[in-house]
Structure formats: structure tokens, C-alpha cells
Simulated scan of single mutants.
Amino acid sequence: MMLLAPVLAAPAAAAPRAPLIWAFGDSLTAGYGVPPAQGFTAQLQAELRRRGVAATVRNGGVAGDTAAQGRARLRWGLRGLGRAPDLVIVELGANDMLRGLPAGQAQANLDRILTELRARRIPVLLAGMRAAPNMGADYARAFEGMYPALARKYRVPLYPFFLDGVAGRRELIQPDGLHPNARGVAIIVRRIAPAVQRALE
């Protein structure tokens, strides 16, 4: 009698998992004042997909958050994602500056955020901010200098100014004089998208 050896089907190759990006910040990443479909995360996801990157961008922005408040919610925010993100865009510090909080305090809290993400081996793109002119030269040097200092310390890529191309252009800012409108968000997204794509790679 001839025995027929069982034929084992080769397992199908698993489809590559789509990258997950978490935009962790304040009102600028939250999309304050614009419809959800025109906010930063929605526009960034659409822009990345136009570039051939099938990423999902989750909104981790909370309007009004300082770096300390971001630090306080970091762990539960990560748990809420369901899995470790492939990239976290850290965009915090603007509210510290607007409230006149010490730059060293903001830097210490950003440092703790980056420490936590490094411990979890989560890649980071750090987004910088500029100080308002009325804060004075000494404050501006300390505040603006903390972002490149942290990027060097943690060896993470730095996007120097989140509002690049938008700040100072009244037609791209909402009536509050602070937050970008939908057109402004589109410019932010077009400018930051290459840095996000490089950070993912």
C-alpha cells in the first residue's frame, strides 16, 4: 500500500503592518479651531499616503497642555493606542512659553518625556518652537536652545520650528492670532512631512 505524505501548506506571508504615528502635543497637533478633517493629524495622514506611506496618524494633542501636563499623561496616552507607535511626534513647550514659565522647567519635562520614550524604544521626531518677541532675548535663547540640546542628548531628529512658513502670516492664522487655520495647517504638514517620513525610515 502506498502511503501519501501529508502536504503541508506554506504559511502565507503576513502583510506588513501599517506604521502608527502618534502626534503628541498641544493645541497645534490637536487641531484647535479647525474641523477634524482639516486638523494636523488628518492632513498629515493624507499627505503621507500621497507620498506612498500608508501610515495611520493618531491625535495625541490636548489644547493648553504645557510640557508638564504632557508628561503627566504620556503613559496612559501610550496605553490608549493599543500598541507601541512606530513614531511619536513630540510637540510641546509653546504653552510654557506663552505663560512665561521658566524654560528650564519646560526642558526638564521634555527631558522626562524623551527618557520614557527611549526606555520603550519608541522613535521620536522632536518639533521645536520659537519664543514670542516680547519674551526677551535671554528667554528666547534658553527656550529655543532647549530643543536642539534635547535632540542632541537623545539623538533624535529635530524639526526646528513647527510653525515654519506660517508664523507671522496673518492670512494663515485664526483670529486669535495664535493658531493656524486650515490653510496654515496644510503648509505645516507639507513642510514637516518629509521629516516625518525620514524619521519613520
Rank of each mutant, 00 (worst) to 15 (best):
G52H: 01
G80L: 13
L48G: 01
A63W: 08
R58F: 00
D65K: 10
A63T: 04
A46T: 13
R50C: 09
L78Q: 09
A46H: 14
G60E: 06
A84L: 14
G80N: 09
E47D: 13
G80K: 14
P85L: 12
R83V: 13
P85G: 07
A68V: 04
L81P: 04
G60Q: 06
N59K: 04
R79A: 15
A54E: 14
L87S: 11
G52M: 03
R58L: 01
L81I: 10
R83N: 12
R58S: 04
A84M: 09
R83A: 15
R83Q: 15
G80R: 15
V57N: 07
R58T: 00
G70T: 13
R71S: 07
T66R: 06
R73D: 00
L78F: 14
W76T: 07
G52A: 02
A46W: 08
D86Y: 12
L48I: 00
A72T: 10
G77L: 05
G82S: 05
G70Q: 14
L87Y: 12
R51A: 01
A63L: 06
R83D: 14
V62C: 07
G60I: 12
P85H: 11
L81K: 05
L87G: 11
R49K: 06
G60L: 07
R50K: 15
D86N: 12
R49F: 10
L48H: 01
A63H: 10
R83I: 14
G61Y: 01
R79E: 15
A67M: 08
L78H: 13
G52P: 06
L48P: 02
R83Y: 12
D86W: 11
E47V: 09
R51H: 03
G61S: 09
R75Q: 15
R58P: 02
G82M: 09
T66W: 02
G82W: 13
G60R: 05
G80Q: 15
A54R: 06
L87F: 13
R79I: 12
A46M: 10
D86Q: 13
D86A: 11
R71G: 01
L81G: 03
D65T: 12
G64V: 09
A63M: 05
G70F: 03
V53K: 02
R50I: 06
V62S: 09
P85V: 07
G64T: 12
L81R: 10
A68D: 04
G61F: 02
G64M: 03
A55H: 01
R58C: 00
A67C: 15
G70H: 03
L48C: 00
G64L: 08
R71A: 04
W76Y: 12
R51I: 01
A55Y: 04
G70Y: 08
R51V: 02
P85E: 10
V62I: 07
R75I: 13
R79P: 07
V62E: 03
R49S: 04
A55G: 01
R73S: 05
G80C: 11
G52I: 04
L78I: 14
A84T: 14
N59Y: 09
L78W: 08
P85D: 11
E47S: 12
E47Y: 00
A63G: 05
G52R: 02
R75T: 15
V57C: 06
